[in-house]
Design a protein around this nucleic acid. Structure first.
Length: 566
RNA sequence: GCACUCGUAGCUCAGUGGAUAGAGCAAUCGCCUCCUAAGCGAUAGGUCGGAAGUUCAAGUCUUCUCGGGUGCGCCA
């Protein structure tokens, strides 16, 4: 297997003293315009050291590296050293590598013996699992898969919102107006209904609030009835959540949420006091973070009870002790950026150097732009409803386009949900994002179904050829621009996965999947695959096979299934 | 008020300081006797919010400014 980029860097390093091999490697890039070549090395940084103009340096370097058999052409243009690969060798090398590595193509072992925690989704018990939760859930699941793909030992944690005074309110509401059978049949909306009713009633009857606080205290003290009701709410909610996670293909290793850490708070508060990090302020305890440009962080309330931030401190400490993570990732909205800056700074002040391994992977808000999704019909913004609607819509499309397809329901599920998930992971994390059902349900262009369709097309071709053929592929048949473009894209997959990993950005991979699909569809359109000449056919089939593999790998990393027919 | 964040084509968005700023959708016009038309091609569409600065090179970095979003002690 030949790594073209490394090969270029090696050759250049032998001819350039002022830069190391590693520095050169990071400078090697892909020209914007493929007519200029497949790889490029900008010579501008050398200008000062060499005391020469970049274009002169490039021209001199050409003479020194021009005898490399991997490249059909090396030329100097405007200060760039442009490398054009020998297309036939390139196709042979890349395709053979993809075919031999299969589902491991693009993976690596950079994460070997390293433990990464990814916390994501973190929904609230007894509250709706709505469209706003999909970002954390899918970005987290995708990162989880990327880390595993790169050899990390990963732990996926769903930090459930399963504690706090709202459970006191819920218990009061349930005892007043709840009906077990009604709620069991439709847990989340019914629990929400009585929760909302509680707030309405409490406006005219404030004693309900006191009652709620009392019930939460009972819950904390292990009161049998309170714990039983809390467990009931939690079980019913988890049943619904797990149904949704199942549809999305999302899995967790731990559901340790707020309640799990409730008994670990006193120790962390004591530690903060012992280390003289906290100070009194208006009866509460705060950490003054002004020297670090942050607002004060509240650690305990006036009544001595703990807060969200205290819980995250306790949770982080527990995770370090229990998992001994190398990296501790939180996929939580950017609205909580300050909160994370605060507690991670406090971890540093506590003297733990693993504060720098705690990373807040933030993301923009989801807004529901489509009127049909807004509050008018209340339940429509439920994530599960959106997923079901997408599946339903997909089934209609299948009946129209491919009525004889077997397993229609399964395929409709894979594509409909894929459409929703893909769209979610297609834009960069940090931007606010407006969800449009209409856009999600159009399956043309830059969409999940487009990539899946391309994959199914490739599978369809592969079904028509003899497997395990011993015919020698004629890779010179893959030197036209469309074929070469597919090979070039295939070659970049590893870099793309590393980039997504480095930036905690799944959308890099989603974009890549589109690029590969577009290239393949052009190739498919321009080149007949099942041709008479068996050597040409073998080469084209090999390219189809390689594309199928990489599309499937990429789809997996962005949490989409890859149906073989659709 | 202070902090963070976003501003690129009519719309939705790409664009690790590098070459002529790119896609998709929508619009207009083409391509199924041929491997899945959920596809392919073409046309049109831009003072990268604005101003100054750093640099050989700025959509990208810095400062200022305008506009949207988010956050800022007893919720989580």
């Amino acid at each position: 297997m030949i790594n073209y980029k490394e090969s270029i860097a090696k050759t250049l390093a032998a001819n350039i003293d002022v830069l190391s091999y590693e520095e050169i490697l990071t400078l090697v890039e892909h020209p914007k315009n493929t007519e200029m070549g497949d790889y490029a090395f900008p010579c501008f940084k050398l200008a000062k050291a060499f005391k020469k103009a970049p274009n002169v340096i490039a021209e001199e370097l050409v003479l020194k590296v021009n005898n490399n058999e991997l490249f059909s052409k090396v030329e100097a243009i405007a200060g760039f050293l442009n490398f054009t690969v020998n297309a036939e060798h390139f196709a042979k090398n890349i395709i053979e590598e993809v075919l031999s590595l299969g589902s491991k193509y693009g993976a690596s072992d950079i994460g070997a013996n390293k433990k990464t925690i990814v916390e994501y989704s973190s929904v609230n018990i007894a509250k709706p699992f709505h469209m706003g939760h999909i970002r954390s859930t899918m970005i987290g699941e995708s990162l989880h898969r990327i880390y595993k793909f790169l050899g990390y030992d990963t732990v996926a944690i769903n930090h459930l919102g399963d504690y706090g005074t709202q459970f006191g309110k819920l218990i009061v509401a349930y005892k007043l107006w709840g009906d077990k059978d009604t709620i069991d049949a439709n847990p989340i909306p019914e629990l929400l209904k009585i929760y909302v009713k509680f707030h309405q009633e409490a406006e005219t009857n404030p004693s309900l609030e006191d009652e709620a606080r009392a019930w939460f205290t009972k819950l904390e003290n292990g009161d049998e009835e309170a714990v039983a009701l809390w467990t009931l709410f939690k079980d019913m909610s988890l049943k619904v959540f797990n149904r949704v996670y199942g549809k999305l293909g999302v899995t967790f290793d731990s559901y340790a949420g707020e309640s799990f850490y409730s008994d670990k708070m006193p120790a962390i508060v004591k530690e903060l006091r012992d280390k003289n990090i906290v100070e009194k302020s208006d009866g509460a305890e705060i950490v003054n973070l002004e020297p670090y440009g942050l607002t004060p962080a509240l650690v305990t309330k006036k009544d001595g009870s703990s807060l969200y931030l205290t819980r995250d401190l306790a949770a982080a400490k527990y995770r370090k002790d229990h998992y001994n993570f190398d990296k501790n990732i939180y996929v939580v909205g950017s609205a909580q950026k300050l909160h994370f800056q605060q507690w991670i700074k406090i971890v540093e002040l506590m003297g733990y150097d693993w504060y720098k391994d705690c990373i807040h992977v933030d993301f923009g808000m989801v807004a529901l732009e489509d009127g049909a999704l807004s509050t008018r019909k209340g339940n429509v913004a439920f994530l599960e409803d959106v997923l079901d609607k997408a599946v339903e819509q997909t089934l209609l499309i299948i009946n129209e386009k491919n009525p004889d397809l077997e397993n229609k329901e399964t395929v409709a599920r894979q594509i409909g949900i894929g459409a929703v998930v893909f769209q979610e992971l297609y834009t960069s994390r940090t931007k606010d994002y407006s969800f449009s059902l209409e856009k999600t349900l159009s399956f043309e262009g830059e969409t999940g179904p487009y990539v899946q369709y391309t994959h199914a097309r490739a599978c369809s071709v592969l079904r028509k050829v003899e497997v395990g053929s011993t015919v020698k592929p004629d890779f010179s048949a893959l030197t036209d621009e469309a074929s070469k473009s597919v090979v070039r894209t295939l070659s970049k997959f590893g870099e793309i996965v590393n980039l997504a990993h480095k930036n905690y950005e799944p959308h890099t991979i989603a974009r890549y999947a589109i690029e590969l699909a577009q290239g393949f569809n052009r190739f498919y359109h321009d080149n007949p695959i099942l041709v008479e000449d068996e050597n040409v056919r073998a080469a084209r089939v090999a390219l189809v096979q390689a594309t199928e593999i990489v599309l499937k790998n990429a789809l997996y990393l962005v949490c989409l299934e890859a149906p073989e027919k659709m």
